[in-house]
Each structure stands twice: as structure tokens, then as C-alpha cells.
Design a protein around this nucleic acid. Sequence first.
DNA 1: ACCCCGGCTGAACGGGTGTTTAGTCTGTTG
DNA 2: CAACAGACTAAACACCCGTTCAGCCGGGGT
Lengths: 228, 228
Amino acid sequence: MPTPDGSTRGRILDAAMLRFARSGFGASVRSIAADAGVSAALVIHHFGSKDKLHEATDEYVLTWIREVKRQSIGLAAGGNLLQVLAAADQYAPLVGYVLRSLQAGGAVGREFTEHMIADAQEYTSEAVREGVLRPSRDEAARVRYLVYSSLGAMLLSVTLDPPRDPEDVSAAMRRFMDELYLPMLELFTEGFLTTRRMLDDYLLYVPDPPAGAQDPADGTPTHDEEEP
Amino acid sequence: MPTPDGSTRGRILDAAMLRFARSGFGASVRSIAADAGVSAALVIHHFGSKDKLHEATDEYVLTWIREVKRQSIGLAAGGNLLQVLAAADQYAPLVGYVLRSLQAGGAVGREFTEHMIADAQEYTSEAVREGVLRPSRDEAARVRYLVYSSLGAMLLSVTLDPPRDPEDVSAAMRRFMDELYLPMLELFTEGFLTTRRMLDDYLLYVPDPPAGAQDPADGTPTHDEEEP
DNA sequence: ACCCCGGCTGAACGGGTGTTTAGTCTGTTG
DNA sequence: CAACAGACTAAACACCCGTTCAGCCGGGGT
């Protein structure tokens, strides 16, 4: 855990992360300073301004996330990094911060989802090669859709029905999973439409998946890809 | 459209809706007053406080939504009310307001999703009866999952990658649909797992869907459906 | 010994906030 | 006409915000 050295600057950074996660990015400099046991002026002295502090906290959280990710490669298979994080209560502040960033549209949220998409890209392409996942007509779009919908559903769930103690976001996520894991799994293994009509109609109407897809795997919209 | 009478109170309500949609609920009373062409004091005079104004605007938006919904029953089939709304540019402010509410976790967001879930409940149960949708082991959970994930994905998409003019949220939603409609349709008709292992394991491990499910369709969690 | 420099603070500044107050209009009612 | 009522406003109030300022400490270099 990259909790910085015991330096005052580090304590401020830690306090900022916690406060931002708990109260959102509107939290006042004074409240962060109080949490860190210093004066508000010192916060500005070290970081220049509140915006700079926000940026520094973003960077701090991002390096932490990268480290966690590096350590738990494979564990997070399937792109469920958020759930891996939530499972370990020590990462609760991290999760809270990420959710706030997704909510506010900040840099952390964007980078977090893009990294998640990139990772999922790898996992799924490997899974397709192994035959446990059906190939898609547009792998990149599929991965993006899956990450957006799972992340978005989780975010919406904890936003509309937040935990009493904003600290305990992991409990809310666990509840979410308990409630909705079954329909998710059902959908993933069986779909829910009984007819191919809608899909075929769409493919007929818009036969071309985005030509500039960053995954050079497929060129043809037909659904038999490379068959070694 | 329940845009209220030309009364000043109505103009303030309208301005509040627009400003809240455009700038979020942190928008100042003075800015709303300026938009409506009145003094800030008058806003308080009419509504008592900013919180009360927020509540009144929520209520105003909700009655508008209910009306639109009543008028376009059937059109919004499948629970894609948001997209129906977005398609008609006249509703752009409504959509913006709803998205802000989903983002902030307000009353409108909660009621909006719950109504959407209730509607989707009806649509899907009818579709299951007609045979175009597979039955689920837990219809209520499935509907909730689908609404959460589609709404959440859309929300996340416009949050992380917002339109330049906050007014033009419908364009962002259209872009979202253009990009991700294919994988969505794919997933819905085919799923993406090639094996039933994960689902069967889960059903074995947690064999009971919530006992109090309001849909008495199926009681047995065993998978004696089609295809061995 | 000096000085200086960086961590650090309390107090203040300037600006924005929601809300209150006092008062001015205008139209209605007795 | 006088009196009241309600829409409406400019100004002020009290507070919170991010930031600045002047100055206090304690330790290291010359």
C-alpha cells in the first residue's frame, strides 16, 4: 500500500483521499486540514491550491490502484477489479474514491475504466481463444459495453441506495452482487431473447462494425472468425 | 407539456429545472433568479428556501415525466424510456434533469428508476407469455438488473465523456447507442458464455431465488429447460 | 554566533452563498 | 379615499469558501 511516508504532506494526502471519498470533491480544504491535524494554510502551502491537491490525490490513488492491480494479476480475471477491491476491506477508501470519481467524471474515473477495459480486452480475447467465451462481431465494443454496464449498474445502485456509513461501501456492493448475480449469470449464459430476429435485422441494416476498431482481429462482419 | 402558466412562479420553476440540468444542483439561487429575470429574494419568497425549490422542481419534473409516459405508452416498450425521451429533442431538459438526479441520488432518480422497473416488469412478463423472452428464475431481479445496467451504462458514458454543450445530452446518448447497440443485442440473443458451468455451479451453491419474489412464475430452480 | 530557510500557524481578505429585512410598488377591497 | 395584500426588489447579514499575509518556530550552514 503506497500510503506515503509519515511526512505531513503524506498525512494530508491521505486525509484528502478519505474526505473526498466520504464527502465528495466539494469537501472543504479546512475539513481536510482538520482531519490531517494541520492548518488549512499548510495544505495550500504544500499543494498550491485545492485543484492541485485534487490532482495530487488523483495521482496518488492511481498509483495505488496500479500497484494493487499488479499484485493481484489474475485474481481480477474477468475484469471484476472493483469487486476484488471491495472484497478486501482495507481498500474501502480506494473504492469510495473511485466511485466518487466515476460519479463526478474526473480523471481517475476515466483512467480507471479505460484500464479496466484494456485488461478485460486481454482476458476476453484469451477466453475466446480457449473457447469459453463466444467470439463477438466487435470485440472492442463488447468489452466496452460490458465494463460500462457492470460499472454503471454498481455505481447507480450505491448512488440511489447509499450505505448509511459512507465508509462501508463494500457492504453495499456485496448486497448488489447478492441480489443481481443470478440474473447477470443467466443473461451471460443464455441471453434472454428467444429469437434472433432483432439481431439479424440489425446486422442487415448496419452490416459494418466500426472499421477502425483498435482490435485488428476481424475484418468481416460475418460470424466465423479466424479458425486456426 | 406541463410547463406551468406564465406566472412568475412558473417561470422560476422552469429556470430552476434548466439550470439544475445544465449546472447540477449546486447552481446558485441567484443564477436561477437571473435566468428567470427576477431577484434572488423573490425565489425565496415563493419557495421558502433552496431545498424547497429543489423539491418543487423535482415534483414538477416528475409530473411532467408521468404525463409523457402516459401519452407514449407502448412507445417506451422494453423500458427504454430514456431513449424515447432523448429522441425527442423537446425533452432534452427533462433528460438532463433526470441524469443529474441519477448522478446525485435524489428523489427523482430513485422514483424514475423504480417506475422504469415497474413498467419493464409488465412488458417483460407479457413478452415471456408470448414466448419472445425466455423466462427467468427470478423475474424481479432480472428486470432490476437490466434497468440498472442499461441506465448505469448510459449515465457513466455521458459522465465520463460529456457533451460540450451540456444542453445536447441527446447527441451523447445517440452516440452511445450507435457504438454499443450491437454488443448489447449480441449479448441479449446469444449470451457470451459457451458453457453452463458457472450458472449451474451458482444454482447448486445458492439454490433459492429470493422466496418473496413477487412473480410466482416458477418455483423450481432446476434447469430443466430446453437443450441438455 | 549569526542568519536563513522551510514547516507551520492565526488572522485576515475578498468573494460567493442562502436568507432576512425593510421598503416600494400595484391592484383589490372595504 | 384609505387600508390592506401580495408581488417584487435592493441592501444588508451571517456564514463559508479558497487563498494570502505576516510572523513564529527550530535546525543546519557558514
